[in-house]
Design a protein around this nucleic acid. Sequence first.
DNA 1: ACTATGTTTCGCCACAAGTCGAAGTATAAT
DNA 2: ATTATACTTCGACTTGTGGCGAAACATAGT
Lengths: 117, 117
Amino acid sequence: MNITKALADENRVRALLALRQGELCVCQITELFGLAPSTMSKHLSVLYQAGLLESRKNGRWVYYKLPGSEAPLAVREATRWVQRSLADDPKVTEDAERLKKVLKMDPAELCKKQCGA
Amino acid sequence: MNITKALADENRVRALLALRQGELCVCQITELFGLAPSTMSKHLSVLYQAGLLESRKNGRWVYYKLPGSEAPLAVREATRWVQRSLADDPKVTEDAERLKKVLKMDPAELCKKQCGA
DNA sequence: ACTATGTTTCGCCACAAGTCGAAGTATAAT
DNA sequence: ATTATACTTCGACTTGTGGCGAAACATAGT
């Protein structure tokens, strides 16, 4: 049942939907939602432990993405349901817009969180 | 998103699955889970407000049941997902067993909750 | 009208969950 | 080795949620 608990938080569902466009690293998702890195990391961890995300480490960066077709049926159907039923939420469409801007700035936005910004 | 929040609680999911067998009145579901009537009523209310249950009042009794095919797509698919993915949970199968016993005692079990039991 | 019964609402408490900042870990760069 | 960076874990705080009992509400029976 940890799938349903993982989907109970709005920020987690929005993060899941943001990953429709492909894999993202933690700092990009953090920038997208404006939460503290530690908070976003926790959310992604919850989704990962529920099986709803896959992760990949490349150097210092950790990338998360939606699971592929090898995932359990419960996971695939839950993901599909979220995408079909919640993708029209205004917050989600706004996220998609903001994500475009985040994807344009690559190395600069990384220090923003650590430095004064 | 209140569908995902409604499904986040284990007792609510189990109640939803218990209703596969047909409509039940509040006192039957309360008896099935051994929770306080007020608690169970709240849970059913959450499910109802998420659109995951329909309710019918007959005299003093309130019956809840799963929604029919006229329900929104998001609701139907969520219900289908819960049934496909979580029906094998041991707690759910135990609930089904206990429900059989609850369905046999009709008027007697009603006073149990009010009286000393 | 009064009582009994099934359900809901309200107040309250205990515990879980979300959030942040600080400290810790891992990897890369100099 | 030291420093910097991307992320995670930890500790503390605040908010949210599930639980109960008491009271309120609705309906039926007498």
